[in-house]
């Protein structure tokens, strides 16, 4: 109820009418692009000859499904988003789009994407896509996010599933190698998000979101980042063992993993998240003490992208 009141209040204050770009913004295009990339990697790694149009439709369904869950997230989280600097300009808290419209868009696109995936490809891929949407929009957004500091650990499954959906779309199966890709993204999520939350924890605290630094403190978060980083980097070698990853992937994993661990160690030794409340100018400007956390956050994106790009190139070009 409080959410609806807030949304209506902000909507009434709106001056500019909603443009189609605002509805596109509801679908979190940047997240969609990452989902497309990892799903495409899963689809290509399946090494199955496939009609290119059907492959494109599979990727489109996954992208639209991801966008749908983003719209549902923006509908439900409008009250939280309005309190945080990073998210307060989103269409619903900014008053450009009504919450009910965001919810309608989310539900409609979810149904379209899942049904099209089922009819065009197969129902395993469609079922996994439906599960991912429900997991992100209901389990993570409506339940975990406001309830536990483990929110992004468990919720990370939604972001980790697209390679499995891509693999299932290509073959109708979800073998061990597909789940290894899922495990890599799943274990990557905690160090990635906790590094970010170390220097945005004031925002999360203000919004009442129990992120790890808010609940357990910065020191505990830095320790957990180091532990998860070690498990994550180790998991990146699993595709080498099963033969999914070739020479390029092994090289990227080893070199990038070394850098990742050095950066995680620096975060562990730093005072990230504990810096005095000095003035911060821009949205992504960081307090001096949190520079190490910012470096790990930035490198984590680069490392994951490099891992999947290596796999994609290897399987698409037939490299060793």
């Amino acid at each position: 109820m409080a959410r609806e009141q807030m949304t209506d209040a902000t909507f009434n204050a709106a001056a500019a009418p909603a443009r189609w770009q605002d509805y596109l913004q509801l679908m979190k295009p940047r997240v969609m692009s990452l989902v497309v990339f990892t799903a495409l990697t899963g689809l290509v790694c399946a090494d199955r000859a496939m009609n290119p149009i059907l492959a494109a439709v599979a990727i489109l369904c996954i992208a639209v499904g991801a966008g749908a869950s983003g719209a549902l997230n923006m509908w439900y989280d409008a009250d939280i988003d309005a309190k945080m600097r990073r998210t307060r300009a989103r269409p619903v808290p900014a008053g450009k789009v009504k919450g009910a419209e965001a919810a309608t868009l989310g539900v409609t696109l979810s149904l379209f994407s899942v049904m099209l995936m089922g009819m065009a490809l197969n129902w395993l891929a469609a079922g996994l896509l439906a599960f991912t949407i429900v997991f992100y929009a209901v389990v993570y957004t409506m339940w975990l996010k406001r309830w536990t500091a483990q929110n992004i650990v468990i919720g990370g499954l939604a972001g980790a599933l697209p390679p499995v959906i891509g693999w299932a779309a290509a073959t109708g199966t979800a073998p061990l190698d597909a789940w290894l890709l899922c495990a890599i993204i799943f274990l990557w999520t905690p160090p990635h998000f906790w590094a970010l939350s170390l220097y945005t924890s004031e925002d999360y605290a203000k919004a009442g979101v129990p992120m790890m630094p808010v609940v357990a403190g910065a020191a505990s978060t830095r320790k957990q980042i180091l532990a998860y980083s070690a498990v994550f980097v180790a998991s990146c070698f699993a595709p080498v063992v099963t033969g999914l990853g070739g020479l390029a992937y092994t090289a990227v994993t080893a070199l990038g993993g070394l850098v990742f661990m050095i950066l995680a160690w620096r975060v562990f030794r730093s005072r990230a998240g504990e810096a005095p409340k000095d003035r911060v100018e821009g949205l992504y400007d960081v307090k001096a003490g949190s520079k190490d956390a910012r470096n790990l956050f930035a490198f984590s994106i680069l490392y994951l992208a490099a891992l999947f790009a290596a796999l994609l190139a290897q399987h698409a070009l037939g490299l060793p």
Binding site: A16, P17, A18, R19, W20, Y23, L116
Partner: peptide, 24 residues
């Protein structure tokens, strides 16, 4: 202007969906 933009976006989306279903 905003309403026209939204209507065109919906029309293009629906047309794309119809074409995709036909081709598939």
């Amino acid at each position: 202007k905003a309403r026209n933009g939204r209507s065109i976006a919906i029309a293009l989306g629906l047309a794309a969906f119809v074409i995709i279903v036909f081709v598939v």
